[in-house]
């Protein structure tokens, strides 16, 4: 086990607790959000970090933020306790709201942009138990769908990659293999992880799978990028102090679950996040430890690094 290195702290100047920090597509911009109701955007250039913008518009703590793909411009989505999702865009050097999504009736806990191949589509999970999907259309309007997802509340959403795992191996040139339909996972207070799929024939989102494995609220779900992976990987973490890795050979087969480690974590596991190629999983636990995990060639998960907050 080794420790992380090259630690560089960035003072955000938030006036309250930070809830999310997201680096943009190239890792050149960092967005942070906080209970102080604001979002801050920093430019990162090696050792230099510069606050470039503070976005204010939410009327409650801002839980999560998500950068859209840069091919759509500099766009950021934020979700808040004020039941709203705001989409911000940088135009002519200034950041402004381009959309306020107010269909939810309780705190919106999570937002995630779909793979860029599908266009600018945003999924939102809320404490009202619903998940909504916003689609930006070519004529500048937004289409919104909202549906019941998790009884007491939905805590997190994460999109599946646009391509079928391993499919890129056979495809050279041309459009990437988009046989994979639009899918995302959500985790909720009903202890379930649900997989949702878009059905073109009915133009609706349907529950494709309901994954039982956790014994308490599911706090976060993360669908792994499938670069170099032969199957779909989905990680979920929970109040029950466990992390489950769900795998699926193809979109029609069953999901198999495996616990990241045989014993429970010492505390609630809050966040799970995959590296770009999906080969490292970062896990943050209530004991203030972040651990990095990798699957070895024997299909076992082993810890490759651990960091303790001082």
């Amino acid at each position: 086990m080794s420790t992380l290195y090259d630690q560089h702290a960035l003072e955000t100047q938030h006036e309250d607790m930070i809830h999310d920090a997201q680096l943009d597509y190239y890792g050149k911009k960092l967005a942070t959000c906080s209970s102080d109701r604001s979002i801050k955007i920093f430019e990162i250039d090696g050792e230099n970090r510069r606050l470039v913008e503070t976005l204010k518009g939410h009327e409650g703590p801002v839980w999560q933020i998500a950068w859209a793909h840069p091919k759509f411009g500099n766009i950021l989505a934020s979700s808040s306790y004020d039941s709203k999702v705001i989409i911000w865009k940088e135009q002519n050097g200034n950041w402004s709201k381009i959309k306020e999504h107010s269909m939810h009736t309780a705190s919106v806990n999570s937002v995630a942009w779909a793979p860029h191949d599908f266009g600018p589509i945003l999924a939102c999970a809320s404490s009202d138990g619903k998940v909504s999907v916003l689609t930006f259309k070519d004529d500048g309007t937004w289409d919104a769908r909202i549906f019941e997802a998790h009884g007491i509340g939905a805590n997190s959403v994460s999109w599946a990659p646009a391509t079928v795992p391993g499919s890129l191996v056979q495809v050279t040139g041309g459009a990437p293999n988009l046989k994979q339909s639009k899918r995302f996972a959500s985790g909720g207070c009903d202890n379930l992880v649900k997989v949702w799929a878009y059905r073109e024939e009915s133009d609706s989102w349907t529950e494709e799978d309901s994954l039982e494995g956790h014994s308490d609220w599911v706090r976060d779900v993360a669908w792994a990028p499938n670069i170099g992976l032969p199957k779909s990987y989905l990680a979920s973490c929970s109040q029950d102090k466990t992390v489950l890795i769900w795998t699926q050979d193809n979109s029609k087969s069953d999901w198999n679950k495996k616990s990241l480690q045989p014993e429970r974590f010492p505390d609630v596991v809050w966040r799970v996040s995959w590296s770009l190629s999906g080969n490292i999983l970062a896990v943050s636990c209530g004991d203030n430890k972040v651990s990095l995990w990798k699957e070895n060639l024997r299909d076992d998960w082993e810890i490759v690094s651990e960091l303790t907050d001082q």
Binding site: A21, Y25, G27, L276, S284, N288
Partner: peptide
């Protein structure tokens, strides 16, 4: 708690 996210 500690939050964590990977840079994409």
């Amino acid at each position: 708690s500690v939050g964590v996210t990977f840079n994409p």
